[in-house]
Write a protein that binds this DNA or RNA. Structure first.
Length: 594
RNA sequence: GGCGCUGUAGCUCAAUUGGUUAGAGUACCGGACUGUCGAUCCGGUGGUUGCGAGUUCGAGUCUCGUCAGCGUCGCCA
C-alpha cells in the first residue's frame, strides 16, 4: 500500500503520528514562507502544510505541484493552532506537517476542476467524465447508488430470493419497444436482441421451480431519451411463485421501508397507500400522479352543458369532457401573457384546442373573457364546484377524455412546480393498481396489451375478456414515487386457456403466437405455478432518493439525447472487414464517425 | 419526426435600437506575503463569438442552413 490512511479519516486521535496519504491536489494556498495544500481522495480532504523548517527536497517538490497532480505525502499529524480549525472539513481539526512529498503523477491543466463552483456545461462534463466523477457531488451519488443496490441485495437475500443471471443475447420479439440488435457472425443474416427486460426468462425460472428470483439487470430499449430515460438502464427485477398481487406489493413495501430507512433515514408507514388506475385518471389525469400536492382535476361537464359558451356546450353535448384544475392563488402569478403561454403549452404538447380560464376577483366574482356566456348563478355553481377563493385561477380543458387527462396532468405538474405547491424534500410512495388489461388502438381498431400479453386479469373480470375487454382489469401494479413511475409489475397468466384467449383478443393468431413465444407457451404446459413479479428502475430510484432531476447524474457513463457517449464517441462506424464477417452492408451512410 | 431553449476567453457568463479596440468573475502564468481554508494584494497571457451562407456601409446581435447539448410531444408492451 502506498498509503497508511485516507484523506477522510485523520483526526485528533492520530496527533503526533507519522502517516502517509495519497490523493489529488485540490487547492494550493501559497503564503510565501509556507504552503497550505489540500489533498483530496474519495473519502474526503485533508490539509498538508509546508513551512520554513521543511526539508529542501519537500519545498522543491511543493513548488512543482499543480491542480490535480497525484501525490503521496508523509508527515506528522498535528493539531491546528487555536483559532485555525476548519469546521467545514471533517479533518478540520488537524493538518499534516509534511516530511516527505512524492509526485506520483502529473496532470495536464484540466478543462474544469472538480472543486469549481460553477458547474460546466453537461457536454463538457460528459466528455471528461473522469474529471466530473471526481466531483464530491457525483461521488456522493455513486456511493448512494452502491448503498441502494447493496441494501436491495441484503433485503432479498433475507427473504430467501435467489440471485440469478439471465442472457444478454436473446431473441428479438417485435412487441413493445424497439430492440437493440446484435448481428450474428456465425449465422449471417440472423440477429440477437439485447433484453428490454428479463421478463420471459424470469417466468421460465418460476416454471423451473426457483420460486423467488431476483436480479439487478441491465436492460436496453432503442427509444428516444428523456431526462428520466436512458437507452441502457438498470432494473431490480424479481419474480415470485405461489403469490397474488398483494404478496408482491407487500414484498416491495418492505423493500421501500428498508431503503427509506437505510438511505434517507426516514420511517415509512406500511402498507403504502394504493389507488386504482381509474381513480388516478379521474383525479389526476395520469397513472403516475405526484401525490405531494392536491390541485385535483374537477369535472364540470354537467355545468358546462348548461352554459351558452359554444365550446363548452358542444363538447359536453358530444359526450366529451369539460374538466378543470384550480391553481390556488395562481391569479397573481399568471397574467394574460402567462395564461397565453399555458394555452400554447397544452395546445402544442397535448393537442388541446384551447384553455379557458376564470379568475376569482377581490369581490368573489369570477372574471373571464368568456364570462358573459354564463349566467351569474351558473358562475356561482362553477365557483362552488371548484372551491374557488379570491386570487384563484381556474383552468378548463374541454376535449376528449384522453386530451383532457393529458393536458390537465401537464398543467398540474407544471403549476405544481411553478407555484411551489410541495416541498421538494418530501418523498411520496404509493401504488397504482388495477390497470386495464387492454388499451384500444383507435387507428387500427384493435386491442393492445396495456402491460404485456402475459398479464393476468383479475379473477372477477375474467368474464369481461369475452363480453367487454375494455372493462377487464389486470392484476397489475405500479410503484409511483413523487410522480415518477418507479416500477411496475403484474401477476402472470399461468394457464394456457386464458393465455390463448388473451392472444386472440390481441389479434395474435396461434401460429404467430407460437412463432414468437412458442418456448414460453410450451413451458406453461409443464406445470407452471401461479406467479408474478415486478421490475423497479434503479436509476430512477437513485435519482429520487438523491433529490436529483435527471437520470444522467445517477449513471457513471450516460448517453446524450442522441444516444452518444461523448467520452468514447460510441456508437461508431466499423470497418468493412468487420461488416463483411457479419454479412452486413451499409445501404445508406448517413454519418461517418471515426 | 414535431415544438422550444442554449452555443461568446480553459470554465461560468456580460455586451443597450445592428455601430469604436468583444468585457467581467474564475482558472492559468509571473511577482509579493508566516496561518491560509472561495486566502489577499500587484501585474500578465488568453477570442475565427459552434460551423457555413446571406442581408447590410457595418453582424456576437437580423435571416436561412447545418452541427452539438438540453427540455418536451410522439415513442417508451
Amino acid at each position: 500500500m502506498l498509503r497508511t490512511h485516507t484523506c477522510g479519516e485523520l483526526n485528533k486521535s492520530l496527533v503526533n503520528q507519522s502517516v502517509t496519504r495519497c490523493g489529488w491536489i485540490d487547492t494550493i494556498r501559497d503564503l510565501g514562507q509556507g504552503k497550505f495544500i489540500v489533498l483530496r481522495d474519495r473519502y474526503g480532504t485533508t490539509q498538508i502544510v509546508t513551512n520554513p523548517k521543511s526539508s529542501q527536497e519537500v519545498l522543491e517538490t511543493a513548488d512543482l505541484l499543480k491542480s490535480e497532480y497525484v501525490v503521496q505525502a508523509t508527515g506528522t499529524v498535528s493539531e491546528r493552532p487555536s483559532g485555525q480549525e476548519n469546521s467545514e472539513m471533517s479533518t478540520g481539526e488537524i493538518e499534516l506537517v509534511v516530511t516527505d512529498l512524492q509526485i506520483l503523477n502529473k496532470s495536464k491543466l484540466p478543462p474544469f476542476l472538480p472543486n469549481q463552483r460553477e458547474l460546466p456545461n453537461e457536454d463538457l462534463r460528459l466528455k471528461h467524465r473522469y474529471l466530473d466523477l471526481r466531483r464530491p457531488q457525483m461521488q456522493k451519488t455513486m456511493f448512494s447508488r452502491s448503498l441502494i443496490t447493496k441494501s436491495i441485495r441484503d433485503y432479498f437475500e433475507r427473504n430467501d430470493f435467489i440471485d440469478i443471471e439471465t442472457p444478454i443475447l436473446g431473441r428479438s420479439t417485435p412487441e413493445g419497444a424497439r430492440d437493440y440488435l446484435v448481428p450474428s457472425r456465425i449465422q449471417n443474416g440472423s440477429f440477437y436482441a439485447l433484453p428490454q427486460s428479463p421478463q420471459i426468462y424470469k417466468q421460465i425460472m418460476m416454471i423451473a421451480g426457483y420460486d423467488r428470483y431476483v436480479q439487478i439487470a441491465r436492460c436496453f430499449r432503442d427509444e428516444d431519451l428523456r431526462a428520466d430515460r436512458q437507452p441502457e438502464f438498470t432494473q431490480l427485477d424479481m419474480e415470485m411463485s405461489f403469490v397474488d398481487a398483494d404478496d408482491v406489493i407487500g414484498m416491495i413495501d418492505g423493500l421501500m421501508k428498508h431503503l427509506a430507512k437505510n438511505i434517507l433515514g426516514i420511517e415509512l408507514t406500511l402498507p403504502l397507500p394504493r389507488m386504482t388506475y381509474d381513480e388516478a385518471m379521474t383525479r389526476f389525469g395520469h397513472d403516475a400522479p405526484d401525490l405531494r400536492f392536491g390541485m385535483e382535476i374537477v369535472d364540470c361537464t354537467d355545468l358546462a352543458a348548461k352554459s351558452d359558451f359554444r365550446v363548452f356546450k358542444s363538447v359536453a353535448d358530444a359526450g366529451n369532457f369539460v374538466r378543470a384544475i384550480n391553481a390556488k392563488g395562481g391569479a397573481a402569478k399568471y397574467s394574460r401573457k402567462g395564461i397565453d403561454q399555458l394555452t400554447k403549452f397544452v395546445q402544442e404538447d397535448f393537442g388541446a384546442k384551447g384553455l379557458a380560464w376564470f379568475r376569482v376577483e377581490e369581490d368573489g366574482t369570477l372574471f373571464s373573457p368568456i364570462a358573459k356566456n354564463f349566467a351569474p348563478e351558473l358562475l356561482e355553481e362553477f365557483k362552488q364546484r371548484m372551491e374557488g377563493e379570491t386570487g384563484d385561477l381556474f383552468l378548463f380543458v374541454a376535449d376528449t377524455w384522453e386530451v383532457s387527462c393529458k393536458s390537465l396532468y401537464g398543467l398540474r405538474k407544471r403549476l405544481g412546480a411553478e407555484l411551489e405547491l410541495y416541498d421538494p424534500d418530501d418523498m411520496n410512495f404509493s401504488w397504482i393498481v388495477e390497470f386495464p388489461m387492454f388499451a384500444h388502438d383507435e387507428e387500427e381498431d384493435r386491442w393492445d396489451a396495456m402491460h404485456h400479453p402475459f398479464t393476468a386479469p383479475r379473477d372477477e373480470d375474467l368474464e369481461f375478456l369475452a363480453s367487454d375487454p375494455g372493462r377487464a382489469r389486470a392484476k397489475a401494479y405500479d410503484l409511483v414515487i413523487n410522480g415518477y413511475e418507479a416500477g411496475g409489475g403484474t401477476i402472470r397468466i399461468h394457464d394456457s386457456e386464458t393465455q390463448s384467449h388473451v392472444f386472440s383478443l390481441l389479434g395474435l393468431d396461434e401460429a404467430t403466437a407460437r412463432e414468437r413465444f412458442g418456448f414460453l407457451l410450451d413451458a406453461l404446459q409443464y406445470g407452471a405455478p401461479p406467479h408474478g413479479g415486478i421490475a423497479l428502475g434503479i436509476d430512477r430510484i437513485v435519482m429520487l432518493f438523491n433529490k436529483l432531476d435527471n437520470i444522467r447524474d445517477c449513471i457513471t457513463f450516460p448517453k446524450t439525447q442522441k444516444a452518444t457517449d461523448l467520452m468514447t464517441d460510441a456508437p461508431n462506424a466499423v470497418d468493412d472487414v468487420q461488416l463483411g464477417e457479419l454479412g452486413i452492408e451499409i445501404a445508406k451512410k448517413e454519418v461517418a464517425r471515426s
